[in-house]
Design a protein around this nucleic acid. Structure first.
Lengths: 208, 208
DNA sequence: GTCTATAAGTGGATAGAC
DNA sequence: GTCTATCCACTTATAGAC
């Protein structure tokens, strides 16, 4: 016997939740939080509204759950990327930063969704809290990585490492956002970001 | 006789348009483009929907007109600020930048409205064009100002001046946005921005 | 130029069947 | 757990009065 008896319903429920979150990700990015109807999201996920309201209290709760989900996923992603390139490319700080920060930003509909989340967070304190927590965690992690590289290679940053982390995150976001607006491909955006970060980092950290 | 006969209706019409734009500014910032109803905007401006549709084709056209209006107003504002502080404070680049860029960003509902415009511009090519044109003009103007200061004072920027202008604009926007989310007052945001720009500029331009 | 009235549609959310 | 049917609030946009 499988564990069908212990948690069959719960597993199914989590799958439904997961598919709804995935659909929400796409729909919110495409048309925005307000223009997105619960119906659109359900249709995309292959459910009806009844199923939706059995899993989420409201569209707002879904959006909040999506932010939390993204925060977790993105921070994990950073950890994975770090492990996958730490050994060899330690000396190449710009390259490392782009790999870690940029790649996850330029792909898919990230700029659209992030912009949407920011716009909502500026109006709703609960969403602001969720978004700020995410960003704070991300900044701390990036700062930690930069600190490691700096220590290992004996570099001397001209501004505090925390500032540098924040700066690089902001620049990454803005560059990818503008690239998306200009109709560039994600690959193009990556190139652009690479160059900009290269110039910035080489101006901001001395090799001592 | 006044020129009442030549353009009485036109003057009145422009006043109506202007009041509608002003109301749109507030409502779009408060609830966002999609959640904002034409009725809300009309109510705020003291008109009814009939008057609205006599002046604008649709909500989208109104939003587009608002972007164009803001672009013009903001770029003019920069010019005014520059003239008002150029003579004495030329040596204080961080201070000048904050005065020019920051003040207009931290006040009122600017972060909310800008975020909303960006979110919309990421989905609608027409709005993207309007927004990108605005930003490009603003960047060019800021770059020109920085170049002046740099030349006059014999400073040596460690990255191209165009990059510096873009960077400072991005940092200003992001700082004000985050400050707003954290519930800080516009004054607080100004302080924060000031410090951040101070550190950044002193790390990025050498006094030669 | 601006208002009132209204048409036609879409939204979120619930109740109850299966 | 998920679906069908439905309620009610609210939206955009137009037609015609003033």
């Amino acid at each position: 016997m499988t564990d069908t008896t212990t948690r069959p319903a719960t597993r199914r429920r989590e799958q439904t939740r997961s598919r709804l979150l995935e659909a929400a990700h796409a729909v919110f990015a495409e048309v925005g939080m307000d223009a997105a109807s619960v119906e659109m999201i359900c249709e995309r996920a292959g459910f009806t509204r009844g199923a939706f309201y059995s899993n989420f209290e409201s569209k707002d709760e879904l959006f909040l759950a999506l932010i939390a989900h993204l925060a977790e996923a993105k921070i994990d992603e950073v950890a994975v990327r770090v492990r996958s390139l730490a050994p060899d490319a330690l000396g190449d700080l710009p390259g490392a930063v782009r790999q870690i920060v940029g790649a996850s930003m330029a792909e898919r509909m990230e700029p659209q969704l992030i912009s949407e989340i920011r716009a909502q967070a500026l109006r709703d304190p609960r969403m602001a809290a969720a978004y700020l927590g995410w960003q704070t965690g991300l900044r701390a992690r990036i700062a930690g990585i930069i600190q490691d590289v700096v220590d290992t290679c004996g570099m001397r940053p001209r501004i505090p490492v925390a500032d540098l982390a924040e700066l690089l995150l902001d620049v990454s976001e803005d560059t990818c956002t503008r690239a998306a607006m200009e109709g560039r491909t994600p690959h193009d955006a990556g190139e652009l970001l690479n160059e900009r970060i290269e110039r910035l980092v080489s101006a901001l950290v001395d090799l001592s």
